[in-house]
Nucleic acid binder design. Structure first.
Length: 571
RNA sequence: GUGCCCGUAGCUCAGCUGGAUAGAGUGACAGACUCCGACUCUGUAGGCCGCUGGUUCGAAUCCAGUCGGGCACACCA
């Protein structure tokens, strides 16, 4: 049983003993919810605030705290101390050490409660013929991390890269390719070559407006499945994905499906038919919309005046398809907050269609990326490509390794783990809603609360464990008297909070809660390392401190994994 | 104009369902390696928690208003 629960039981019992006449005293669960952590560990490990009992018991909070303390008596869990309106608890340190080291932070014990539940995650969702830039990093890493977090908690997860592979612009690109492109150039140049074709199209279309019509015609042919058009379109897609795959590999990101917008081309009739049947579709300015005035939102467009579908239509079709196919418990859409209204609109349409699972559709929104204070703009060249960022981070990591650990084996691999880790960590350190203004010096900072800091701490633990093995010390936490000092207790405290941090992260769709927790753990361990000698003559005490080190290493590695980072054993 | 989001140390940000003197990193200054990895650790300075009112025993946290910033607001995605 965890410490908090044990204390809640103590308090609940003491309440009944101290106030036998009183009615409506809080039960154990309620007491547990009231328990809080004092602002300073010198005040105790947990505190029970007595203020809200003041009115029903008709006594002052300090009087209640004292009465509870008297009723509680001695016990092996914790000692109490009345402080104003609070009853503070100091845990029995040896027992806390024993309990905490018995936890396994690399597994989630209650996994069975989530088995059979499925989470669909829609993330990264890149556009065909466009290069990966820093604006795509957050959706990719946030989604990837959430997927790992839900996996850890025992869910079945479905990662979907909902490719932006539909729209007139692809007709224009095919048109440009037919006029001025050639196969070898595109094969060699990849996405860049396709982008040039697109730019060329717009230049030429200024002079010759008939090209616009030609472009639309090409897209129509793709829609209708005409052989040549479809072949070129699919080839563009392959080339883009091959480019993107290089970046995904560097980041260690994978997907279960690459079903993009085009995948739903033949699944949209159902949406339109169903909306008509349910009398939700109304005509407005020639277009077909779902009216949302009573929900205080602008109408949701389903069909354009020319009868063509929109991406909202495809999102609805995709949601229906995913519900049918995966029967998800929740479907997460990891998309920037710009599209807030769009999601609120079509989620509402699903609700109006009568699907109770509309409440399970979650827009996991996040902040925008700018570069040195200005909006990103591919057209103006004001952009940082993701691959360049990753490569420069790896380069810098390699330079630091050359300087500080020239003898390290396989420097390139470690530099990759550290450099990319720094970028990923920084992306998942703050609350996702925060905007990010990109500056090179910030992005390449490896000091302080950064990925390399946590990785370094992990490597330091590994090193210590190697030394322990050489010295013949086997990790063994039984001599808990060696772990009662303030620094060890702080490490234990941070270890004990890991799983709840992961649960909070999943509740709030906020991996930064994991990032923050492992950072606090690393800070606590580094302080401990400096203040206390881990390996010394006392074998029993060393074994206990080595066991603590092992738990820290395992937890850091697990936490790094959950946010999509690797944990090198040496760096 | 309407809706949503944000506003906490010079800078970047934490602050869990309201709770005890508001925290960290960074930058500045001052320190710590004959000792388990100094990508580390310790200390000092730095804050009308945008502003005003309200609810409460208690508000950075909840409510209303206000100012400042971002985003969105029909045939693009």
């Amino acid at each position: 049983m965890n410490a908090k629960k044990s204390i809640a039981e103590l308090v609940a019992k003491a309440l009944i003993k101290a106030f036998p006449e009183a009615a409506g005293l809080p039960a154990v669960d309620e007491v547990e919810a009231f328990l809080e952590v004092p602002p300073d560990t010198a005040m105790g490990d947990y505190a029970f605030p007595c203020f809200r009992l003041s009115k029903p018991l008709k006594k002052g909070p300090p009087v209640i705290a004292q009465a509870l303390l008297n009723a509680m008596g001695d016990n092996e869990v914790a000692t109490g101390q009345a402080a104003g309106g609070y009853l503070n608890f100091f845990l029995n340190r040896e027992r806390f050490a024993l309990d905490t080291l018995a936890l396994d932070n690399t597994r989630y014990d209650l996994a069975s409660s989530n088995t059979g539940k499925t989470i669909c995650l829609d993330y990264s969702s890149i556009n065909i013929a466009k290069r990966f830039h820093i604006g795509h990093l957050t959706t990719t890493m946030l989604g990837h991390s959430l997927k790992r977090i839900y996996d850890f908690l025992g869910y079945r997860t479905i990662g979907i890269n909902h490719l932006g592979d539909w729209g007139t612009q692809f007709g224009k690109m095919i048109c440009a390719y037919k006029h001025w492109g050639n196969k070898d150039e595109v094969e060699a140049g990849g996405v860049d070559a396709m982008t040039s074709l697109y730019v060329r199209f717009h230049e030429e279309a200024e002079k010759d407006p008939s090209l616009e019509e030609e472009g639309r015609a090409w897209f129509k042919r793709v829609e209708d499945g005409a052989e040549e058009a479809l072949a070129i379109f699919n080839w563009f897609k392959d080339v883009t994905l091959k480019d993107a795959e290089r970046v995904y590999q560097k980041l260690g990101v994978t997907f279960d499906y690459y079903t993009g917008e085009s995948f739903y081309n033949d699944k949209m009739d159902r949406v339109v038919v169903e909306l008509k049947e349910k009398a939700l579709l109304v005509e407005s300015d020639g277009a077909q919309v779902v009216d949302l005035t009573e929900d205080n939102m602008p109408p949701c467009l389903i069909l354009k005046r020319d009868g063509a579908t929109l991406y909202t239509t495809r999102d609805i079709a995709a949601a229906l398809y995913r519900k049918d196919t995966f029967d998800f418990t929740k479907a997460l859409y990891v998309v920037a907050y710009q599209q807030d209204l769009h999601f609120r609109q079509w989620f509402k349409v699903i609700e109006k269609m009568g699907y109770p699972w509309a409440k399970d559709l979650i827009h996991v929104s996040f902040g925008m990326v700018s570069y040195e204070g200005q909006a990103l703009s591919t057209r103006k060249g004001h952009v940082i490509y993701l691959e360049e960022l990753l490569d420069r981070a790896v380069e810098k990591a390699l330079a630091i390794i050359e300087e500080k650990s020239p003898g390290l084996e396989d420097k390139e691999t470690v530099a990759r783990q550290v450099g990319i880790g720094a970028v990923v960590f920084a992306d998942l350190f703050n609350n996702r809603i925060k905007d990010i203004d990109f500056w090179w010096d910030r992005a390449l900072n490896f000091d302080g609360e950064t990925g390399p800091y946590v990785q370094y701490t992990h490597a330091r633990c590994c090193s210590l464990l190697r030394k322990a093995t050489e010295a013949g010390v086997t990790p063994n936490g039984s001599q808990t008297s060696a772990l009662t000092d303030d620094d060890a207790q702080e490490v234990l405290r941070q270890l004990s909070r890991f799983i709840s941090a992961v649960l909070e992260a999943s509740d709030h769709y906020e991996p930064s809660m994991v990032t923050r927790q492992i950072t606090r753990l690393a800070q606590a361990f580094n302080k401990y390392y400096y203040e206390q000698r881990i390996l010394d003559e006392d074998m029993g005490a060393s074994a206990a401190r080595v066991r603590l080190t092992e738990a820290v290493r395992d937890t850091l590695r697990q936490g790094l994994w959950l946010i999509g980072m690797e944990a090198p054993e040496r760096m």
